[in-house]
Design a protein around this nucleic acid. Structure first.
Length: 175
DNA sequence: ACGATGATGAAC
DNA sequence: TTCATCATCGTA
């Protein structure tokens, strides 16, 4: 997709350093931007999920700090990327303040539905794990200056193991 | 409905 | 060091 908006502004650290549910909602309609060999690809975000804190049993970080989850305990605005089912990557963006493990999973965009396909199509892999999306020249989020979309919400996908946390309406989508 | 496919975390 | 599990997707 070609960039066709006059006022694109990159989301900064302050955007991500807020309540995770707020960030998850406000990321809808924003653009996931990737530079691949000098070419810019931008995809409008259509679906997100929030993972909030260590008490949230659906959150990978509920196990505490491990080599995999340590980026979620770091400062906001960085990418948390993991390999799922041996073949797909999922992109999350760390939120809230440093030390509080939380992130928003990018579950889908206009170019690709599903977190795995989003990463596959935009060539996002574990090399971006820990990358600061407020500074990177390869991957970041832009506000296209459009008015915020209608937001629907539902239960998170694939977290049936998470006890009472599985029914939280922490998945947000548009359309 | 199910298999592909490998990292992860916990048990032993 | 083994083992079950997994924030998925394509094929059927």
């Amino acid at each position: 997709m070609i960039l066709k908006f006059k006022s694109m502004t990159r989301l900064n650290k302050n955007f991500f350093a807020r309540n995770t549910l707020t960030v998850a909602r406000e990321l809808l309609g924003k653009y996931l931007v990737r530079r691949i060999n000098g070419k810019i690809v931008a995809a409008k975000i259509t679906e997100t999920e929030a993972y909030c804190g260590q008490s949230d049993l659906a959150n990978h970080a509920s196990k505490g700090i491990t080599p995999r989850t340590k980026v979620m305990f770091g400062p906001p605005g960085r990418a948390y990327i993991y390999l799922i089912y041996g073949m797909y990557h999922c992109l999350n963006i760390v939120t809230e303040k440093e030390g509080y493990p939380a992130a928003v999973l990018i579950r889908g965009c206009e170019l690709a539905d599903g977190p795995g396909k989003t990463c596959r199509d935009l060539k996002i892999d574990k090399n971006f794990n820990g990358v600061d999306l407020c500074l990177s020249k390869e991957l970041w989020i832009e506000d296209g200056g459009e008015k915020s979309p209608i937001i629907k919400k539902g239960k998170r996908i694939g977290v049936d193991y998470a006890g009472k946390w599985k029914d939280k309406l922490w998945r947000f989508y548009t359309e």
